[in-house]
Amino acid sequence: MPDAPDGPVPPEADRDARVAAAAEHLRSVVALLRELDLADTPPTAAYRAEEARTDAAL
């Protein structure tokens, strides 16, 4: 995971800059995936129209 050192909470303006930098780092890590040709590949998120029954016998 991207690191951030522990320590006292910095003042707000500094915080905003740190969050922006961390977000930019994260975006740059994830941007690697733009190299992939995903074509028609669907996402993995699963959805079923029927909610699973809690009494299902399995």
């Binding site: 690191d3 951030a4 909470v9 977000a23 994830v30 995936l33 733009r34 590949t41 996402p43």
Partner: peptide, 30 residues
């Protein structure tokens, strides 16, 4: 804690497109 707060706040700024691209790349990896 400062480390976790920063990760969470940064994560909130990632776009839905990035999230979906990760899910689609996951399909490829599987």
């Amino acid at each position: 804690g400062e480390d976790v707060r920063l990760l969470l706040e940064a994560g909130a700024r990632l776009s839905a497109g990035d999230h979906l691209r990760a899910q689609r790349a996951r399909t490829l990896m599987r």
